[in-house]
């Protein structure tokens, strides 16, 4: 996929595979993601998109194959170490600290990036800068007025925004969004898309986006890859991939059935 003249990919998977018993959820997926690009990953439910994400960010261990960040093999590293190598992940099912405040959720992400987690003898708010940054981040996702609420008391849409805020607070080199707008009300979707657009506009961040909404994919993606039954079945420019027979049949047909 990556020709010899291209720079080292920001992220690459080589023959990445996971088997659950007899079921092959992700089947030998080899793919390289160039720095500064936004790649949409599409495919019907159960195609292995989230599993592929879990293999990259380390929530699942691969049966075979490898994951490389900046050309370095990270396949054996735990999820936390991968985060410090620059992989950041937002989750499809909201995955927050339910009883801590929204501010504390974000502050914990910033604290991790700042490498301050092992400080034991200072009071947590000695690092005023981390709190201020967390407050600014909540401002960005329009949650500033809800910073003292815990996720379990937030609406679904607000939880999704907080999920995005946690990822942006980590400010990884590689952003992985797993259906960031799923379940959001129509008027909340543009906020999140605008944030993704801004990250992309910086030009130095690599973005992977699992998304079902084709209009979103069309407007944001530089490239689309299609997963079907765990295998990579199409890869290319958005227009040509969407037009390809395999996508029309395997994905769009099924998407229509879902809706």
């Amino acid at each position: 996929m990556a020709s010899a003249s291209n720079p080292t990919p920001a992220l690459e998977t080589r023959g990445l595979t996971i088997r659950f018993g007899g079921h092959v959820a992700v089947n030998a997926v080899s793919c390289a993601f160039q720095p500064g690009t936004l790649t949409a990953i599409v495919g019907p439910n159960g195609a292995g998109k989230t599993t592929y994400f879990n293999l990259i960010s380390g929530q699942l261990k691969a049966t075979a194959g490898s994951v490389l960040v900046d050309g370095r093999d990270i396949t054996r590293l735990p999820a936390s170490a991968r985060t410090h190598r620059g992989l950041g992940r937002a989750f499809q099912l909201t995955n927050l600290f339910p009883q801590l405040t929204a501010l504390e959720n974000v502050r914990l992400a910033i604290q991790s990036r700042a490498g301050a987690g092992w400080s034991m003898f200072n009071i947590w708010d000695t690092r005023r800068d981390l709190i201020e940054e967390a407050e600014a981040m909540l401002e960005t996702v329009h949650l500033a007025d809800k910073r003292h609420l815990s996720p379990k008391t937030l609406s679904h849409g607000d939880q999704r925004k907080l999920e995005v805020a946690l990822l942006m607070a980590l400010d990884p080199k590689i952003y992985m969004f797993d259906e960031p707008t799923a379940g959001m009300s129509v008027d909340e979707v543009p906020t999140v898309l605008e944030l993704i657009h801004q990250i992309k506009a910086r030009g130095d961040r690599t973005i992977l986006l699992v998304e079902h909404k084709m209009d979103v994919v069309r407007s944001l993606a530089d490239r689309i890859i299609v997963l079907h039954n765990g295998a990579l079945v199409a890869d290319g420019e958005p227009a040509s991939v969407i037009a390809s027979p395999i996508v029309q049949e395997a994905y769009l047909g099924l998407e229509a059935a879902h809706d």
């Binding site: 936390s80 985060t83 989750f91 801590l100 604290q111 991790s112 400080s119």
Partner: peptide, 22 residues
């Protein structure tokens, strides 16, 4: 401390704490 806050995050959601880099 910042360390203590990480412990509470782990208690709340160890999976997410790991994903955040702890």
């Amino acid at each position: 401390s910042p360390f203590g806050r990480v412990l509470q995050a782990i208690r709340e959601n160890e999976f997410r704490a790991e994903a955040l880099g702890y």
